Simulated assay, not measured.
Amino acid sequence: MKKAVSGLAMTSAVVNMLALTGSFFMLQVYDRVIPGHSLPTLVGLGIIAGTLYAFQGVLELIRSLLLLRVGLSVDERFGKSVYESLVLLPSRVQTPGDGLQSVRDLDTVRGFLSGPGPVALFDIPWMPFYLGLCFLFHVWVGVTALAGALMLVALTIMAEQKSRRPAKEAAQLASERFALAEATRRNSEAVLAMGFGHQLGRMWSDVNCRFLDNHLRSTSFTISLSTLSKVLRMMLQSAVLAVGATLVIRQEATGGVMIASSILLSRALA
Rank of each mutant, 00 (worst) to 15 (best):
D98A: 10
V33T: 08
Q94S: 12
G71I: 04
Q237L: 15
R185G: 00
A260S: 05
S6E: 15
G117D: 07
L61G: 08
S188H: 12
S175C: 08
L68P: 06
G142S: 10
R164G: 02
L236P: 00
N208W: 08
D31N: 15
M234Y: 05
V93M: 11
L241G: 04
L39Y: 14
D123C: 00
G201D: 15
N214K: 13
S220Q: 05
K168A: 15
V191K: 01
E84T: 04
S229A: 12
M158K: 15
Q172M: 10
G201Q: 08
V87L: 10
F129I: 12
E76L: 08
P128D: 03
Q101A: 15
L89K: 11
R186T: 12
V240G: 02
S38Q: 06
H138D: 14
A149K: 05
A120E: 01
V231K: 14
R63M: 07
L121F: 12
F135T: 09
L59E: 03
S262P: 05
V139K: 14
F211W: 15
L236S: 01
G99H: 03
A49C: 02
L146Q: 05
V141K: 01
P40S: 05
R185W: 00
A183T: 10
L89P: 01
G57I: 10
A145Y: 01
R63I: 03
A159E: 11
I259N: 00
H37M: 04
S175I: 07
Q56Y: 13
I223M: 06
K3N: 15
Y130N: 03
L155Y: 04
P116S: 06
S91G: 08
G195S: 04
A245I: 14
A260G: 02
V109Y: 05
S218Y: 09
P116Q: 10
L173Q: 06
E189S: 07
G97V: 03
F25E: 03
D31Y: 01
D105L: 08
A54F: 11
R92L: 13
V153E: 08
S12E: 02
S38R: 01
R110Q: 09
D98K: 06
P40E: 05
F25N: 00
L18W: 04
L8V: 10
G7I: 01
G111P: 00
T246K: 12
L228M: 12
G197Y: 11
A239Y: 09
I124N: 01
E60M: 12
I157H: 05
S266T: 10
C209H: 11
R267G: 02
F122S: 00
Q161C: 13
L192E: 11
R217V: 14
S85E: 10
E252F: 09
P35D: 06
P166G: 07
E60Y: 09
A239V: 09
E160F: 13
F221D: 02
A120Q: 01
G115H: 03
T254C: 07
P128M: 10
V207P: 00
T227A: 09
W126A: 06
L20W: 02
L269P: 02
L66H: 08
V119I: 14
V58C: 07
V82H: 04
R164A: 15
M151N: 01
S220W: 07
E60L: 13
I263Y: 02
M127F: 02
H138C: 10
S12C: 03
P125M: 03
